[in-house]
Nucleic acid binder design. Structure first.
Length: 501
RNA sequence: GCGCUCGUAGCUCAGUUGGAUAGAGUACUUGACUACGAAUCAAGGGGUCGCAGGUUCGAAUCCUGUCGGGCGCACCA
């Protein structure tokens, strides 16, 4: 054990060995460390020189961004920030769904019913509308399907008109998605989607063929994965076309070459667990040992308490609705509780976004997220606003303090509540590490919640500004340390707390 | 049928490598604003950790079985 002044004595008690710490010394060390390191507190250099790729969000163009995508986006964003805090060089990849027969259908639909004016106004919904219309019409007139396939073929062949239309859809969609990413302050390093890998797939097939891994089965080319106790992975469909597994293989190889990643994290819905097991296994069979560095982080399915969300039945929640509701609700609360607040809209947005992020990162990903407007918009108790409010109160006190001793005597922090706070602050680094090891942002979420809770208790029982000067200054230092860690922790989740609310 | 996963308070969930009397929030009841911001705090009731075996000084945690829910199981992604 490291020699320091913290452990005072140790004694055995009923089969346990109890250590007694020198609280005074402990508190001093923790608080000084937090204040010195500021927003670097809890960081580390364990990731130095290592690149971690995080693939997340990955919406399909020309389709609405629903709540499932939102959960995924928020989760991936937090994971990236957590790894970054640990010193890793991180790269955020948005593997856009921009390839497939569906785009042939969309081109066909556009040529039939597309109206540029309407599309400019509300691109995704209008593209969605004509896409749905295509399917309705195709029920009556099956020849439409052929037309869709025809245009997809054109697209693959590089036909200028088809390509131009596809690019237009892609641009319009991305523009729309970026609005949402802006709301959450998310920026991607790459939008290389499925289409980006089209010309990289032949090589994958060559590699697999060369290693004798490809087998013919019912007309399709597959890789047998029986030794892994997995169903076979289809590489080429019986019509000779590629499939998403092929694209994921090409993407993985491309990424390894381009970034030489230490880890490649796929933040994708839990429902695709088997798919990733198959893809990683194929890579392994092909001799790519780095397949072990590829990790599927399966995000939670979102459902209602009594039923599951169903796109088909129109029982869906769009990301935009969630954002709008949260901001509106926050504005209402501000208007009743703090009507004179400046920049209400800005604050409402921060608090609203924070509430959403908090809700989605509240529990571990093995469980489904039971969505309820009531819970999401309840800003009391364990919630984003609760933690942000604790931060805001701390900052408010710090702003009011005058004539502070920059280097206060921290031995004035004698109460249990103060000790618990210091104790909790000391746990931050370990918490960040654990969140990364488990690939679970909720670990951070629980941490900041607990810290806020302990601070609120302290706040409610002990005077800060009105305490004797020496005690006051020590408590101010403690408050400062708490606000630093709260802001850092929230930041790792992608939550930006306001200074007032 | 097979694989993965979950089952802890009315509800939503913590409880990582087995340890002291199983914890939060919510909801409900009650108390605290002439106090640094009440989006806060304090107090109370609420449990066969799905069930049954097993491993051992000790199991919510590990093993086996079983029941129940979710997801997935070749040419969609």
């Amino acid at each position: 054990m490291e020699k320091d002044n913290i452990v005072e004595k140790a004694e055995a008690a009923g089969g346990y060995l109890n250590f007694f710490v020198n609280k005074e010394e402990f508190i001093k060390q923790v608080i000084n460390q937090v204040i010195q390191q500021g927003d670097k507190y809890g960081s580390s250099d364990e990731g130095e020189g290592k690149t971690v790729l995080v693939e997340f969000s990955s919406p399909n163009i020309a389709k609405p961004f629903h709540i499932g995508h939102l959960v995924n986006t928020i989760t991936g964003n937090a994971i990236e920030k957590i790894f970054k805090h640990l010193g890793y060089n991180t790269v955020k990849l948005n593997h856009i769904g921009d390839y497939g027969t569906q785009f042939g259908k969309l081109i066909s639909a556009y040529k039939r019913w597309g109206n540029d004016e309407v599309i400019e106004k509300d691109p995704i919904n209008e593209l969605m509308n004509i896409y749905v219309k295509f399917h309705e019409e195709a029920e009556k007139d099956p020849s439409l399907e052929d037309e869709g396939r025809y245009y997809f073929k054109k697209l693959e062949e590089g036909d200028p008109e088809a390509v131009a239309l596809w690019e237009k859809f892609r641009e319009l969609s991305l523009k729309e998605f970026k609005k949402l990413y802006d709301d959450f302050n998310i920026e991607f390093d790459s939008y290389a989607g499925e289409s980006f890998y089209t010309d990289k797939m032949p090589e994958v097939i060559d590699i697999l063929r060369e290693k004798n891994l490809l087998k013919e089965s019912s007309g399709a080319q597959i890789v047998d994965l029986e030794q892994f106790n997995l169903p076979p992975c289809i590489i080429l469909k019986s019509d000779g076309a590629t499939i998403y597994a092929t694209r994921d293989l090409a993407a993985a190889i491309y990424r390894k070459r381009t970034y030489d990643f230490y880890k490649c994290l796929y933040v994708v819905g839990n429902t695709q667990a088997l798919h990733f097991k198959q893809v990683f296994s194929v890579l392994k069979l092909a001799g790519f040992d780095w397949a072990d560095d590829c990790v599927h982080i399966g995000t939670s399915l979102v459902k209602f308490a009594d039923r599951k969300l169903s796109t088909r039945k129109g029982d869906v929640i769009f990301a935009k609705e969630v954002v709008d509701e949260a901001v509106e609700k926050t504005l209402e609360i501000i208007n009743t509780k703090n009507p004179n607040l400046e920049n209400k809209e800005d604050v409402a947005k921060k608090v609203g976004m924070g509430a959403i992020i908090y809700t989605f990162l509240k529990n571990n990903m093995d469980k489904d997220i039971v969505f309820s407007w009531e819970d999401m918009l309840n800003f009391e108790g364990e919630s984003g606003p609760y933690v942000m409010y604790s931060y805001v109160r701390g900052k408010s006190i710090l702003r009011k303090a005058e004539n502070i001793d920059i280097n206060p005597d921290l031995s004035n922090l004698k109460t249990d509540d103060e000790f618990y706070l210091a104790k909790h602050l000391s746990l931050f680094k370990e918490t960040v590490k654990q969140a990364a090891e488990r690939y679970e942002p909720f670990v951070i979420n629980r941490y900041v919640t607990e810290l806020a809770k302990v601070y609120n208790k302290f706040y409610n029982t002990h005077p800060i500004l009105t305490a004797d000067k020496e005690v006051r200054d020590a408590r101010l230092a403690l408050t400062k340390a708490v606000t630093i860690v709260l802001a850092t922790g929230l930041g790792l989740l992608g939550i930006q707390p306001p200074e007032n609310m």
